[in-house]
Design a protein around this nucleic acid. Structure first.
Lengths: 340, 340
DNA sequence: CTGTTAGCGCTTTCAT
DNA sequence: ATGAAAGCGCTAACAG
C-alpha cells in the first residue's frame, strides 16, 4: 500500500487540504466540508464538529480559494473598477473603508485601475469575483457579459439613472449642504465651480442639482455656474467672472476641495479676499484643506458608514436577501473652517 | 447515447470550455491546451493550430481562471498591497501605469488596501496571485508564509535594505535633484521639510539622504531638518524655525508636494515671501501644484517608465529570466515653476 | 504529432 | 449522521 507520503518525507511541505483534515479527524471530506461551511440543513453533532475544528486548527488548514472558485463558479473577491479620472485622497479613503467593511463580512476587496490596452472584461475573467463595483453604471451590454462570465452581481455606486442596479449614494446632499451653509451665512448670490473634466460629470451633475434645489428653497436666484480649468489662468478667470456679476457672487460651492483650493489661490492672485469678498466651500475634506490659507470649509462624508452600507448591501444581495436601498442621510456634514 | 446537451436545449448557455473547443475542432483537450498556450517543445503543425484557433474564436472561448489557478497553484494576477498611509494622486498614477504595463505582459493587476480587521495573509489566500508587490519590504516571516501559500514572487518597490528582494527605486535621486536645483539658484543654506508621519519613513529617509549628499557635493552645510505637522500651527512653526537660523535658511526641500503646498500657506501666514525669502521645492507634481500661489517647483517621476521597469522585472522573474536591477536614472526631472 | 488520463481542492447529491 | 463519488476546467506526463 505505498501511497503518497504527506510531504514530511520528501519535498517542501504541501499546504494542508480538506482531505488532510478529514484523515486527521478520522472522518470524510464531506463531513469536514459541512462543518467548515456551516452548511444549512446538515445536522452535525457537537463532538464531531469539534473533532473537525481541532484537526483543521492543528494542521493550520485554510481552504484553497482556487478549488472553491472552480467549484462555485466565482471567487470570494469583490472587485472595484477604479474610475478613469485621477484618483485622490478621498477615493483612497473610500477604498480603505470598503476593504475593511467587506473583510468584516468575509469578502476580499481589490481594486483595479482601468488599464489602457486590455479591455476590462479580461479583468473579471482573471478574477471571477463574486461582485463587481463600479463608480458609474455599466452598459447593459457589459453587464450581461459580466453575468455570463459568472459574476453574480454588479453594483454602481453613483448615478442610479435607469433600472435599479445602482446603490445611489446621495451626492445631491453634498451640494445642498454647501449651499445651505452659505445661505445661512447670509450670501444671496451663489456660484458653482464646475470641474473642467468631462469624466466626472456623473458626480458634478447631482451636486450642482443639490445646490440648485437649496437655492430654490431659500429663495435665492439660480447659482452662477462657471467651469474652472485647473490652471492659474483658469482659476483667475473664474473668480473674475463671479466678481463681475451684477450683483456680484459672494459665495462659491466648489465641485470638490481640489477645485476649491485652486480657487483660493486664484482669488488671491486677483486680489479678492476669502472669505471677505468671496466665501468658498469644498467637498471631500482632503488633508490639504486643513492647512491651506485660509483653511477650507468643506463637506465631508462619513466614509466608514458609507462603506458599511455598501458592503452590507453586497453581502445581502449575494445571499439573496433583500436590500435597504439608500444609505442614511446623515452621512454628510459641513466641516466649518476659515473659508466660509 | 443520451449524453448531456450543451445548454442549447435547456438552461442558460454555459461558458464554452476547453473540451468544447476540442470537440468542435475534432481534436483532444490536450492538443487544444498545447496550441492555446504555445507550450514549448510541442510541435504542432500549422493546419491543426488553425483548426484549434478557429474553433476557439467561433465559440468565444476564454480560459477559466479558476481552473487554471487550481491546476497551476496560482493565478495570473499581480497583487499590490497598498501602504497604510493615506494615498494621494501620485500613488493613483502609479497604479494606473502599473496596471497598463502589466496588462501588456498578460498579467492582471489589482490593488488591495490593507484592511483593519483581517490579516493580510487572508488576501493572498483569496487571490493566490502570481506575484505580490509591496511598497516596503515584507518581514522574512511573512515572505516565507507567502511562498508557502503558493505565491511565486514578492517584490518590494522601495527600501532595498537587506537581501536583494527589493526593486530599489532610486528615491535618493529626488532629494538630490531638489537640492541641486536650489544650489544652482544660489541658495547656500537649505532646509528639509520632514513629514510628520512615521509611516512614510522609508521614503523620507532616502530622499533626505539625497539632499545630504548633494549638499556635501556643493560644499553646503548640512540641511536643517524640521518636522512639519500638517496643521496651520505646524507649518508656521516650521517656517519660523528656518527663518530664525543663523544664517537663515533660504531654500526648502519638502518631503512631497503636500508638505510643500502646506509650507506655501504657512509662509504666507507669517509674512514670508515665496520664493523671495524662501524657495520651496516639492516632490510628485500633484495636480494642485500647478495651480497654487505661487505654483510649485517640484520633482516629477516618469511613472510610465517606472511601471514599465517594474512590470518587466516581474515578468522576467516569473519566467525565471535574469533581471536588470535598477531602473534608468533619468526617470526623475525637476518641473520648474514659481516657487523656486 | 496527437490522444488518454490523472489529478489540482472543493462542494454536493445520493446512499447508507 | 456520515461516507463515496462525481465533476468544476485545466495542464502535463505518458502512450501510442
Amino acid at each position: 500500500m505505498a501511497t503518497v507520503s504527506n510531504g514530511d518525507g520528501g519535498g517542501r511541505p504541501r499546504r494542508p487540504t480538506g482531505a488532510d483534515v478529514a484523515r486527521r479527524a478520522g472522518l470524510s471530506r464531506a463531513t469536514v466540508s459541512y462543518v467548515l461551511n456551516d452548511t444549512p440543513h446538515q445536522a452535525i453533532p457537537e463532538p464531531t464538529r469539534q473533532r473537525v475544528l481541532a484537526a483543521a486548527a492543528e494542521l493550520g488548514y485554510t481552504p484553497s480559494a482556487a478549488g472553491r472558485a472552480l467549484r462555485n463558479g466565482h471567487s470570494e473577491v469583490v472587485l472595484l473598477l477604479l474610475p478613469d479620472w485621477p484618483i485622490g485622497p478621498s477615493v483612497g479613503e473610500l477604498l480603505e473603508s470598503l476593504s475593511s467593511a467587506l473583510a468584516e463580512l468575509g469578502l476580499t476587496f481589490v481594486a483595479h485601475p482601468r488599464s489602457t490596452g486590455r479591455p476590462v472584461s479580461d479583468v473579471w475573467k482573471a478574477i471571477t469575483p463574486a461582485a463587481v463595483i463600479t463608480f458609474e453604471q455599466l452598459d447593459d451590454a457589459e453587464t450581461t457579459k459580466l453575468e455570463a462570465a459568472g459574476v453574480e452581481l454588479a453594483v454602481a455606486l453613483f448615478g442610479g439613472r435607469r433600472g435599479g442596479r445602482a446603490l445611489d449614494i446621495p451626492e445631491q446632499r453634498t451640494g445642498r449642504l454647501q449651499a445651505e451653509h452659505l445661505a445661512a451665512a447670509g450670501h444671496r448670490r451663489l456660484g458653482y465651480a464646475w470641474p473642467d473634466d468631462p469624466r466626472v460629470l456623473t458626480f458634478a451633475q447631482p451636486r450642482l442639482e443639490g445646490v440648485r434645489h437649496a437655492c430654490a428653497d431659500f429663495g435665492l436666484p439660480e447659482p452662477e455656474v462657471v467651469t474652472v480649468p485647473l490652471t492659474p489662468e483658469g482659476v483667475t478667470g473664474a473668480v473674475r467672472a463671479w466678481r463681475a456679476g451684477e450683483p456680484a457672487v459672494t459665495g462659491i460651492c466648489a465641485y470638490n476641495d481640489e477645485v476649491a483650493l485652486a480657487l483660493l489661490a486664484g482669488a488671491r492672485r486677483v486680489g479678492v479676499d476669502v472669505p471677505g469678498d468671496l466665501a468658498v466651500v469644498g467637498v471631500d475634506d482632503i488633508p490639504a484643506s486643513a492647512v491651506s490659507l485660509p483653511t477650507l470649509t468643506t463637506v465631508r462624508a462619513d466614509t466608514a458608514a458609507l462603506a458599511g452600507h455598501i458592503a452590507e448591501s453586497i453581502r445581502r444581495k449575494l445571499d439573496g436577501r433583500p436590500v435597504s436601498r439608500r444609505p442614511g442621510s446623515d452621512i454628510h456634514a459641513v466641516i466649518r473652517r476659515e473659508s466660509a
